[in-house]
């Protein structure tokens, strides 16, 4: 099902590897999302999220400083951010970890290596569920 996504929405991409951030930004641009910013770990992302009025957060799990799972927990515990949709894009593939992310309130979980089609499908699914 094709979902009408708001292509102007503001997206924060958090990953410690600049190449992965570039790949995700390029894929998002291909999907029509051009309003994207980057952060290299949870502790740089958090102040940006608090002031930047982001509509969507795409984060890695394993990062120095603040990890993606801690960022997710912090976002869910913050009154102004708790409804922010969060997609985790990570190499972490243990069942325990996926369950932990789900319990922490993640909206979608993509394991690396991933394809453009998977990223698109998960983003659509997240906003389809939010809109319904």
């Amino acid at each position: 099902m094709e979902v009408d996504l708001n292509k102007d929405m503001k997206i924060l991409v958090v990953d410690d590897f600049s190449t992965m951030r570039r790949i995700i930004k390029n894929l998002l641009r291909d999907l029509g999302f051009t309003n994207t910013d980057e952060a290299d770990d949870g502790s740089t992302a958090l102040p940006m999220l608090k002031t930047g009025k982001y509509d969507f957060l795409v984060t890695d799990w394993n990062m120095p400083g603040m990890t993606g799972i801690d960022l997710l927990k912090t976002v869910r515990a913050d009154d102004s951010l708790k409804t922010l949709p969060v997609l985790m894009v990570t190499a972490e593939a243990k069942r325990d970890q996926i369950v932990a992310a789900a319990q922490a309130g993640v909206n979608g979980y993509v394991v690396k290596p991933f394809t453009a089609a998977v990223l698109k499908e998960k983003i659509e699914k997240i906003f389809e569920r939010i809109d319904s």
Binding site: G68, I69, A91
Partner: peptide, 11 residues
Amino acid sequence: GIEGEGPQMNA
């Protein structure tokens, strides 16, 4: 606690 491990081999 639960920690990041990076890519898994022989998944």
